[in-house]
Structure formats: C-alpha cells, structure tokens
Design a binder for these strands. Structure first.
Lengths: 234, 234
DNA sequence: GTCTATAAGCGGATAGAC
DNA sequence: GTCTATCCGCTTATAGAC
C-alpha cells in the first residue's frame, strides 16, 4: 500500500499504515530509496523506544516526544522516519507479532505431545521473561478490542490456531491427549505464562520475585507444567 | 483529605483525589451537604458510564465528554459531580475494588480445600462473565504499573493475599494440599479466569463463544478446575 | 444543578532553512 | 537528515448566567 515516508499533505487525519517495507537483505544499494546505515539504526532505536513506551502507557498515553527522547532524537526527526504516531504504533505491532507467535508455530506434529507442549510452555514463559513489553503491548491492544490488529487476529492468528487445534484433536483421537476442547488448553497456557509478564508489578509486589530470578522461573514453570499437562495427558 | 466538589482554583493540574465520601446510609437529611436523589442517580450513572469507557479505552484514551454523553448529561455537568477526570477515574477504581476482591475474602478456613478452591474458581469465573469491564479496568491499571493503585495494592491486597497464603500453607502442613508455593496457585486462578474477560475479543474470535454462553461457561469452568485442583489436591 | 462561553495548554503534525 | 519555528485542533477545566 505505502512504502516510505512520502511527504504529501493529507486532508484528514490519516490512519494509513506505513508497514516497514520489508527491507531487502544486503546493503541498501537500491537506487530508488536507499536507507543509510545510520538511518536504519535510528529506525531501530525508535522502534525499541516506542515498544517500551507503548507497552507501558498505551497508544494514547504515550507522547511521541517521550519516544524521541528515549531514542535520542527530536520529535520532528522522529516524524521524519514515521509519518505519524499511528504509523509508528502499527510498525511496532507488526514488527513484534511474528516473534510473538513463533513458539506456537513451533509446536510440531512429529513430537510427543508431552514434549511438544512442555516445550511450548517453556518457550512462552521464556518469552514472558525476556520480552515482557511485547506481552503487554499485545495485551493492551487486545483488551481494548484490538482496534488496530483485529484484521490480523481474525486471519493470521485464527488460521494458525485452527491448525494447532486440529493437531491437538488428532492427538486426542489417537488417545495421546485426554478429550477436551483444545482451545481451553491454549488459553490456559497463554493466560498463565503471560500473566507473569503482564502483571509483573503485582507479582513482584506480592512475592518479591520475578521471572528474572532463575529459581522463581523454574518454580513457575513447574507449577504451570504440572497443572496443565497433568490435566490433559492421559 | 477532600470531600465534596469544592470550587477553589488550583494553580497546577491537580491529581487530588475525590474519594466518594462514604455516604451515610438513609436519606440525605444531613444539613451540611445534602445529595438529592436525582444527584445521587446522576453520580451512579456517571460512574457506570465511566467504568465502561475507562475499561475499554483506558484513562488517557477516554474523553470525559464521551462519558457524559453515555450518562446523558453535559460535560460541564459531569465536572460538577467530579472535580476532574482523575478524580472520576479514582472513584471508579475504588468503587469497583471491593467487589472485585470479595471472592478472595470468601475463601474460608473452615471449608474443605477442594470445596473452597472450587467455589473460588467458580466465583472468579462468574465475576469475569458478569463484570468483564471491572476485570479489564484493573488489568489496564496494573499492567501500566498501577500508577493510581500501587498504594492500595501494596497494603490492602498484600495483606489479604498474605492471609490467604498462610491458610494455604496451613492446609499444606496438614497434608490437605500438595506442597507448592501458594502464590502460584492464586496466580493461576487469577490468570485463567480473568483471561476470559480481558481477552474476550480474542476468545470470541477464535472460538465463536463467550462466557455468556452457559455451555461454554461450564466447559471453561471444568477445564480450569480440572487442571488447577488436579495439580494441588493430594 | 444545568447551561453557554471561554480560557488555557498540550501534543501531533507541517513548513522550510540548513 | 536534522533543526527551528509554528500552526492548529482537541480536550480539560473554569467562570458566570440562569
């Protein structure tokens, strides 16, 4: 749809998306619109800063000037790289989504259910530990009705989940999983693992620990694995 | 600290709280500051509308004019009842908090652990079904670091949780629960039950159902009870 | 208690020089 | 690519009449 920051005036407030235009690998030798190394580095710093801010204060609660400061440039300069706050927000969402869905994709039909699900839980909990902002970003977005992401959820996520649900049903038919509505299994895994990222403030206030503590991480992992796998394995 | 809307000018943007001044039961016969029946009804309608809006779009994403319209009065008039947006937000939070913590308080030492925890899970899931906005409101608040609520969480909630954790540890010592860090049991219950409220959009998109559907509710309840109680009961 | 009018300030976005 | 200056709309909040 769109590609790079084209400075044409728009009559109304535009919500046009500037998806970061899948940069061709290798040096930016393309004559059409070359992105310098410094430029690319700025882009990345902006996206990192934006993720942190949006995950903490949401879209409307975040001022682009704060993001710019975190990234070490001026507000105007940030708007050179991203045409609008919404464009930046969307860029952050899409950049993070693939990474976020990766563990689910990795659930493998060839593996043993116990092993595959155990790996999935561990991977999700590691993601909650290593990328809590990503978890919170999506949680904020989905909780507000996914205004910017509903299309992707309804298509990409739905498709992916449908495939994995079919796999779980297959395992059930083979007697390798107890009969259950498979969605609940997924929801329980998502809910419990992401809780430790999304509600980290509360978890720390109540226990004094976080997933960053290896002992606490192991405890948590075992608690989740025990309850969820215990319920679905025959 | 403060009580009713006093119209004194404030030099800086004020975050002073107008906690709703625990209205004495019975008719407003107090001569000091009587609240008419109509006034009280307005207040309630505002609070209801505010809960719905804040839960959906957050504090900064909500315009008080939208709340006013939902409640059927003008923005100016809303500000007659609540001195500021922040005051209104705080009033909504505090009004909802007690209701939200009630199920946890109800966990009873005299009951059988299986029964007590089963009831707790059911009550939490009913709350997620009947008051999803309350769930989302607190989720939004806590996920953003609980800027307005951290004091209450650190004292009231902490105290309440500490008491219940002690009870769970007692049950463990008596051999009526498997040894486990009790916090994880609570977190799992919170996470799974609240997930169906907080991520209702996603749940509906993926399953086509919601907790409002009695069949789906039962399915969900049984899945949660099975996994969580299965793991902690001896 | 409710309305009209308006103050006051913030924050996103653009223009244009360098 | 980065900066300075500035515009403009939006939203909270207040003043004051009725």
């Amino acid at each position: 749809m769109l590609s790079q920051p084209v400075n044409r005036p728009l009559p109304m407030r535009h919500f046009a998306e500037e998806l970061p235009a899948a940069q061709p690998d290798g040096e930016p030798s393309t004559p059409v619109r070359a992105m310098t190394a410094a430029g690319e580095a700025n882009r990345e710093r902006i996206l990192d800063a934006a993720l942190a801010r949006f995950a903490r204060t949401g879209l409307s609660g975040t001022r682009i000037e704060a993001i710019a400061q975190d990234a070490g440039l001026s507000k105007t300069n940030l708007l050179y790289y991203f045409r609008s706050k919404n464009a930046l927000y969307l860029a952050v969402l899409t950049r993070t989504l693939d990474m976020w869905l990766e563990p689910l994709r990795a659930i493998d039909a060839d593996r043993d259910p116990r092993e595959a699900l155990g790996h999935y839980i561990t991977a999700k909990l590691e993601a909650a530990r290593d990328h809590p902002e990503a978890s919170r970003l999506f949680a904020l977005e989905v909780m507000q009705g996914a205004p910017m992401l509903s299309a992707v959820l309804a298509t990409d996520l739905k498709e992916l989940v449908d495939r994995k649900v079919a796999l779980l049903q297959l395992w059930q038919a083979e007697g390798r999983l107890k009969p259950h509505k498979p969605h609940h299994l997924l929801f329980q895994i998502w809910a419990t693992t992401q809780h430790y990222a999304d509600f980290a403030t509360q978890v720390e206030q109540l226990t004094g620990a976080s997933l960053a503590d290896p002992v606490f991480f192991q405890q948590t992992r075992e608690a989740i694995v025990a309850s969820i796998l215990g319920a679905v394995l025959p």
